[in-house]
Amino acid sequence: MAAVRVCGVDDLAVNEASRFVVDGVPIAVVKDAAGDVFAIGDTCTHGDISLAEGFVENDTLECWAHGSMFSLRTGKPLTLPAYEPVPVYQVQIEGGDVLIDPAVTLTV
């Protein structure tokens, strides 16, 4: 599958997660204060909870339900109770649009 437009860069609030479903895959997208855009799997590996409903701090996204924090750069959990990572997706910015291909995950 090719990368799909999920939103415009300007549609994303700084340091807030937004949830998108791309080809059936739930993805949390975050724009940080520097304007970098990250995309990680939207489902917490501990409790089947939407991470986009959580809290962004620096380069982490915290699950609102149990407090697990995931790196936006690697998808790795940084705190318990989660111990499995979430996928990280490649983000392309073209003409102010955010493009994501859910078939392409990054390994960091």
Score class of each variant (00 low, 15 high):
53 E>N: 04
108 V>G: 04
74 T>L: 11
43 T>H: 02
68 S>V: 11
55 F>K: 09
96 G>D: 05
49 I>E: 06
7 C>N: 13
91 V>I: 03
41 G>K: 04
3 A>P: 01
83 Y>P: 00
62 E>Y: 12
43 T>A: 03
18 S>G: 08
68 S>P: 00
50 S>E: 05
14 V>C: 01
91 V>T: 00
49 I>T: 09
9 V>G: 00
96 G>S: 12
96 G>H: 10
15 N>V: 04
45 T>G: 03
106 L>N: 04
15 N>H: 07
16 E>Q: 14
93 I>Q: 06
29 V>Q: 03
14 V>H: 02
73 R>Y: 14
36 D>V: 15
30 V>G: 02
43 T>W: 08
49 I>N: 02
101 D>A: 14
7 C>V: 14
81 P>A: 15
31 K>A: 02
3 A>V: 03
68 S>I: 05
101 D>S: 10
48 D>L: 14
48 D>Y: 15
23 D>E: 15
44 C>P: 03
69 M>E: 13
9 V>K: 08
60 T>D: 11
101 D>H: 10
101 D>E: 08
77 P>N: 06
86 V>R: 02
86 V>S: 00
28 A>M: 00
7 C>M: 12
77 P>F: 07
43 T>L: 13
103 A>F: 13
106 L>Y: 12
107 T>Y: 13
13 A>K: 10
32 D>A: 11
81 P>W: 08
88 V>H: 04
15 N>K: 05
28 A>S: 14
48 D>H: 13
101 D>K: 09
28 A>R: 01
74 T>C: 10
83 Y>W: 12
77 P>I: 11
103 A>V: 09
86 V>D: 00
38 F>S: 06
49 I>Y: 11
24 G>M: 09
29 V>R: 04
48 D>A: 12
79 T>L: 04
23 D>N: 13
7 C>Q: 08
52 A>R: 01
37 V>I: 12
33 A>L: 06
10 D>S: 14
1 M>V: 11
40 I>M: 03
59 D>Q: 15
24 G>D: 05
59 D>R: 15
69 M>L: 13
97 D>V: 02
43 T>V: 15
67 G>E: 05
10 D>W: 14
90 Q>T: 13
89 Y>V: 07
104 V>W: 01
24 G>H: 06
83 Y>L: 05
31 K>N: 01
67 G>L: 08
105 T>F: 07
93 I>C: 05
25 V>I: 15
74 T>M: 12
69 M>I: 12
67 G>S: 11
10 D>F: 15
15 N>Q: 13
83 Y>E: 04
89 Y>K: 02
79 T>N: 03
45 T>D: 05
100 I>R: 00
85 P>L: 08
23 D>S: 14
